[in-house]
Design a protein around this nucleic acid. Structure first.
Lengths: 219, 219, 219, 219
DNA sequence: TATGAATGAGGCTTCATTCAT
DNA sequence: AATGAATGAAGCCTCATTCAT
């Protein structure tokens, strides 16, 4: 079955693999640049250099700079969603706090990244070159929300959560996380806490209980 | 005794008034542009045109584009601070929730603006041309936090609030607001609620009780 | 004859005097700015402020910025010419070196100023707004040269100076001075001498004897 | 053995060569503009157009406009220095006037250029963007002066030259040249001589003998 | 008459994107 | 397929000059 001479199909497959690997590399290096230097400092040239390839090559993989940023956004959202899926499963298996916990953990485990993603979204939002990707992003969120909504609906039914439209809980969660990340990195607050972890724990605690009627303190 | 001819002093005063008025006008028009078109679209030329003046005139009032943005930031923070001061006064007069309420109200009464201000801060933060103003901004926040801290300390002492470093409560508040604003204007969530007010009321409710030990539900 | 009430003519005369005084003041202050801050840093606004008047007022006296600079140039050239006239007189009275001496002294007694004037001339040279003044400047030089020429001609006739077209001597003089000034202020040479005076004395010595056939060493 | 297909290394080398050639082209065209239109009229846009390239391309080769000017300066100084080195060699080989002659010749053979370079230096001198290059320029001069100093020292020792600090002779030379160039191109003197060459010869003659004690007239 | 706010042409520079090699 | 030089639109800012008060 195996052959010393790779078949033409194998060669093509190998090329494709390499191509995709490089694409991933570009995204990763772009992310590294963004985190290290700040959004405004990162140019396509910088990304190419960091990735060890030519500027032109970047455009073989992405049609525009915005597309790279959009890709980072979608990758991030995917990861969160995957975590939440696991959390939802656990929640359905009888651990009602698992979902929220999964969500907070996903986003707060690397607040630098989360903050960056927030900023990226702003920049891309109205760029027609990535309108499609932005649409996908929103679609992903919508689906997540729907699934959460169903579960939250159950908890409301059981009287665990306050009776408001189910996605309010999700949105409130989202809001708190978003803000927590901002607090962490706002330079004006830098001297307000020595232990970021401690503060985030406090805020997470709020997240776990907010909207509850009181029964869910057992995180 | 009075004269129909305005004195030289009057004239100078009038000129100064006009100058300041025009300065205010620039800020207002800049703000209008920013809210209407988004940060990235607003150029000095656009601001000038919106204000009905020449590009050069802008630079009679502000040393750089960043300075205009910084001014918007400081104006906004001042307004919030003034509101909070009133809230603190009320809180000290026996209405312990007043401060938090004032804070939420200040920021959520015009979430579009609040979101813009968040974005502006990011852009300006590292611009050496407005390092001073950014410093002032942080200083303002620090002072506010200190005053709040004192009051929160009392509430902790009375057992109303959870016993954590006092400013944790402020920061959690800030975080929730920050995030609430983001939710409101994130286009991905636009279709998740028909009544923004209702959602904000829900989130504000969370803000009012978070960190409490349960006694403060009567807002 | 005198009157406590100044006549209308007196008033006008007084006004004229004040007007001219202010004009002179503008020129002086402009010069001060130029010497202190360097040509490129001096704006009309700076001159006006230094003179304690409004920018608009400057334009009551001069039609353009170049005109101020041209005025400085002409004033300087006039002063040199006056000194040379005296030198020529002395030379005709039997002291053949007096003229050259006067010339060197005029220009090297304040080399900073001389250098500035050199630079100003460059800037103005092709500005059509002051074509007339530049013409006057050249006219002044021409007249001076002619008078010198006559005298140099005599010295050549007497065999004191080398027999070349008379103005060659003047031009060589001018060249040496011009360069001496440059040496003094060229930053690349700043560390080549501790005593500027000493160097200038050496160069002046060269100026006094160059073109001579040897008889004129008695400076 | 050779191949019709250029190797990858060859291609890269060729590209580098082309790149450097274009760089040189920019410098040359910039110089052409400067000589033709005068310093004040030359913009980056003009240089780009003259070189037949886009404005952006200029910035692939030079970090700023000043850097182009600095390059012209350094190129010029290098050429002079090379000539002087040859002159010094000849001087050490027994022709004591060769050095001075080489120097004068270097600078006066193209006085238009020399004058431009003088002006460029003024403009650049305090620009922090080319502080390094200005430093190099001064360093080059210093080294040259040191070598000259040694040789002049010998001539002083032999009693040929007047006994002053050795670099005085160099500086005097420099001064005379600097001024000679100014004379040539000062429009006010344009009508004072029909034969520029003749005048320069006269002045060069002065340069050859100045500071001498009389023995060196045989140039 | 003196003022200085307003002007806007024009300079320098950046960087996403293209395309010939 | 990969490259990176070339591009030029677009942004920010300066400053000589004007003109309404």
């Amino acid at each position: 079955m195996g052959s010393v001479h790779p078949s033409s199909t194998d060669k093509i497959r190998e090329k494709k693999r390499q191509f995709l690997a490089r694409e991933q590399r570009i995204v990763e290096r772009a992310l590294r640049c963004l985190l290290r230097d700040g959004i405004d400092q990162v140019t396509v040239a910088a990304i190419a250099e960091e990735a060890g390839i030519g500027k032109g090559t970047v455009y073989k993989h992405f049609q525009s700079k915005s597309e790279i940023l959009a890709r980072i956004l979608l990758d991030y959202e995917s990861r969160i969603r995957a975590n939440m899926d696991a959390g939802i499963a656990a929640a359905e298996a009888g651990n009602p706090g698992a979902m929220v916990k999964a969500y907070f953990h996903s986003r707060l485990s690397n607040p630098e990244l989360d903050r960056l993603v927030q900023q990226l979204e702003e920049r891309i939002q109205d760029d027609p070159l990535v309108a499609k990707q932005v649409g996908e992003l929103h679609e992903m969120r919508r689906m997540t929300i729907d699934r959460i909504g169903a579960m939250v609906g159950q908890l409301i039914g059981r009287g665990v959560l306050e009776d408001v439209p189910p996605h309010y809980h999700y949105l409130a969660c989202w809001a708190l996380v978003q803000g927590a990340v901002d607090v962490c990195f706002n330079k004006g607050f830098a001297d307000q806490f020595t232990d970021k972890e401690d503060l985030l724990r406090f805020i997470t605690g709020i997240g776990m209980t907010m909207g509850n009627k009181g029964q869910l303190r057992d995180i």
